[in-house]
Amino acid sequence: MHKPQSQSQPQRRSPMRATPSLRGADLPLLLSLNVLLEECSVTRAAARLHVSQPALSAQLSRLRQLFGDPLLVPAESGRGLAPSPFALKLHRRLQPALAGLNAAVRFDADDFDPASAVRTFHIVANNTGAAVILPGLARRLLALSNKGLRLTLSAPDGADLAGRLEKGEVDLCFGTACLLPSGLSSRELTTTPYVMVQRAGHPRGAAPVGLEEYCALDHVNVARDSSLHGFMDEQLYRLGHSRHTALAVRDFSAVAATVAHSDLVCTVPAFIAPYDHAGVEVVELGFPFLTYTLCMAWHPNSDGDPGLQWLRAQMQDVMAGSPRAWTPA
């Protein structure tokens, strides 16, 4: 018969992490912790938080003391840092809590007045999107006479665009639907056919260009990386044809001047064709071809942002009333 366990004998318990005691001064550290765990780099996190690296390192030390965990440890690959197992669990619980705080301080639509607001909107657009949206949007911003409302426009750089949209580093992005990141809210702004730009008085005449004649011409390709091979070449390949590209330029601003003084031709979406340039003429493609659809996209987290609601509405109005969105009959 077993003797009963003595009451004086301590019972063995599994180790438990001490519950941190958060003070009011510690709450801002949670914002820093969220960014640190997203970036896994003190340098990048400090840049996002607009603080010095020593200051953020001090915050990380306080966080490690507060939670009794290293939080960020050397990565197994030997390069950079990685979240500890505890930090991964903490990060999953921290994100919805911060999202709730953001929702709690979100302004109502009436709180954004474009005539007096102080804000800088950040837009990412490809060459086509920039050429179409920027003129009309710039006119609308200037008409407000509000020096505090500003806009930056940059090209897609291949980085984590969806992540930048989620973090609020980018407000809107513009491009073709097939090239936009998944998981975003989007809206089609306009669809237009492709047309060919040639110099006025080109030897071939001004009639619509057929497929065989098109492939026999010397072309200018527009690509941000100045590639001689582009979207048009891929489509022609699917049709069993190819063309000769003699020149590549980075954006559409150089097309009219280049074509006006040579027999080169360039294919562009109709809504950015230089119809008003005296030295060139625009002709239709006389063979079936794909159309170009310009889309606007944003992160679902910004659906309720009144400033971005206003900006998205401006973009729709710009495209609805712009002659550049005209589609030839």
Score class of each variant (00 low, 15 high):
residue 223 A to L: 09
residue 109 A to S: 15
residue 202 H to E: 09
residue 193 P to R: 07
residue 174 F to M: 11
residue 170 V to L: 05
residue 16 M to Y: 03
residue 229 H to K: 09
residue 160 D to G: 00
residue 291 T to P: 13
residue 210 G to V: 03
residue 291 T to S: 15
residue 111 D to M: 05
residue 108 D to R: 00
residue 96 P to A: 03
residue 68 G to C: 02
residue 10 P to E: 14
residue 187 R to W: 00
residue 82 A to Y: 03
residue 196 M to E: 08
residue 222 V to R: 07
residue 284 E to I: 04
residue 316 Q to R: 12
residue 153 L to V: 15
residue 178 C to A: 13
residue 80 G to E: 05
residue 326 W to F: 11
residue 66 L to D: 06
residue 170 V to W: 01
residue 252 F to A: 12
residue 12 R to D: 15
residue 173 C to Y: 01
residue 237 Y to L: 14
residue 57 S to P: 02
residue 228 L to C: 07
residue 45 A to W: 14
residue 248 A to H: 06
residue 213 E to P: 04
residue 297 A to W: 02
residue 154 S to R: 14
residue 49 L to C: 08
residue 39 E to T: 07
residue 155 A to S: 09
residue 102 N to K: 01
residue 13 R to C: 06
residue 38 E to T: 02
residue 146 N to A: 11
residue 113 D to G: 00
residue 276 D to K: 05
residue 319 M to F: 09
residue 267 T to V: 14
residue 27 L to N: 04
residue 139 R to L: 13
residue 200 A to W: 08
residue 322 S to V: 08
residue 12 R to P: 11
residue 284 E to S: 15
residue 143 A to D: 15
residue 285 L to D: 09
residue 313 A to S: 11
residue 105 V to W: 02
residue 132 V to Y: 09
residue 292 Y to V: 02
residue 242 S to Y: 08
residue 326 W to M: 07
residue 229 H to Q: 09
residue 157 D to V: 10
residue 92 R to G: 04
residue 137 L to Q: 06
residue 248 A to P: 10
residue 100 G to K: 04
residue 162 A to G: 07
residue 81 L to C: 10
residue 261 H to E: 15
residue 76 E to R: 10
residue 176 T to H: 08
residue 147 K to I: 02
residue 90 L to S: 11
residue 135 P to C: 02
residue 325 A to S: 14
residue 36 L to D: 00
residue 84 S to M: 09
residue 310 W to R: 09
residue 92 R to A: 12
residue 291 T to G: 13
residue 4 P to Y: 10
residue 269 P to F: 01
residue 150 R to G: 14
residue 108 D to G: 14
residue 130 A to R: 14
residue 181 P to A: 08
residue 256 A to M: 13
residue 308 L to N: 07
residue 157 D to M: 04
residue 266 C to D: 09
residue 271 F to H: 05
residue 299 H to F: 06
residue 242 S to L: 07
residue 197 V to Q: 08
residue 172 L to Y: 04
residue 290 L to R: 12
residue 124 V to P: 00
residue 116 S to F: 02
residue 221 N to V: 15
residue 165 L to H: 07
residue 185 S to E: 01
residue 23 R to Y: 10
residue 306 P to N: 09
residue 238 R to C: 00
residue 119 R to I: 14
residue 244 H to G: 03
residue 255 V to Y: 09
residue 209 V to R: 12
residue 229 H to I: 05
residue 288 P to I: 05
residue 286 G to E: 07
residue 207 A to S: 04
residue 304 G to W: 10
residue 179 L to K: 13
residue 20 P to T: 10
residue 95 Q to A: 03
residue 29 L to M: 14
residue 325 A to M: 06
residue 279 G to Y: 07
residue 95 Q to V: 15
residue 324 R to N: 11
residue 43 T to G: 04
residue 129 G to L: 03
residue 70 P to Q: 05
residue 291 T to L: 03
residue 56 L to K: 07
residue 172 L to W: 08
residue 26 D to S: 01
residue 136 G to S: 07
residue 133 I to P: 07
residue 100 G to C: 06
residue 156 P to T: 01
residue 291 T to Y: 07
residue 159 A to Y: 05
residue 234 E to N: 12
residue 197 V to D: 12
residue 319 M to N: 00
residue 36 L to W: 06
residue 114 P to N: 03
residue 113 D to L: 00
residue 20 P to S: 13
residue 135 P to G: 04
residue 243 R to K: 11
residue 53 Q to C: 01
residue 215 C to N: 01
residue 106 R to M: 15
residue 61 S to N: 12
residue 122 H to K: 14
residue 111 D to H: 02
residue 133 I to D: 13
residue 248 A to V: 08
residue 127 N to I: 02
